[in-house]
């Protein structure tokens, strides 16, 4: 497998600029929700990294937190980067919307809100459901969501 990670010295520089971020062994970056917008703006606008393509945006529900996951690509340099934000407040999870940076975030954020119940803030038209009916109660991808039927039920 070829390596598409951002070079270590660039990651060091990022760590210098954003002291709150945590770089995992596999290259994933964990960013505090408060720093997300500034961090994403930096890696997108800085020509050294130029992460111009938001390829995937999703979220996962863990016991102690919700976690949003962003997969970014630099079409210019060929780098890939996974950014995660941990949201400890499961009752009222909020994270800044990335729509001001990438319009491609819009539908993916709406899907994540719809199914996982994470509120993306700071963008008109958010939060709105997209796949489920507007009157639907709950967010089905949450682990505590009670669903009827299924083969085992």
């Amino acid at each position: 497998m070829a390596d598409y990670n951002i070079p270590a010295e660039l990651m060091e520089a990022l760590k210098g600029k954003f002291s709150g971020i945590e770089i995992m062994e596999n290259g994933d970056v964990i960013v505090p929700a408060a720093d997300l917008m500034a961090f994403m703006t930096e890696i997108k606008e800085n020509p050294d990294t130029a992460m111009d393509f938001l390829t995937n945006l999703t979220a996962s529900d863990y016991k102690d937190r919700l976690e949003t996951v962003y997969n970014l690509v630099s079409i210019t340099h060929g780098y890939t980067l996974t950014v995660k934000v941990k949201l400890e407040d499961k009752e009222n999870p909020q994270v800044p919307s990335l729509c001001p940076l990438w319009d491609g975030a819009s539908w993916q954020e709406r899907e994540t809100y719809d199914l996982m119940g994470i509120v993306f803030t700071g963008y008109p038209g958010h939060p709105t459901r997209i796949l489920l009916d507007d009157n639907f109660k709950g967010h089905p991808l949450r682990k505590d969501y009670q669903w009827e039927g299924g083969r085992e039920a």
């Binding site: 393509f53 079409i75 060929g78 890939t80 319009d103």
Partner: peptide, 23 residues
């Protein structure tokens, strides 16, 4: 690129982004 398009929809605009080539 801004709208995260891919496949022939993106390549129709001349962006050379095909995973089979780039990664």
């Amino acid at each position: 690129i801004n709208y995260s398009l891919s496949g022939p929809t993106l390549r129709g605009s001349g962006v050379n982004y095909d995973l089979r080539k780039v990664r």
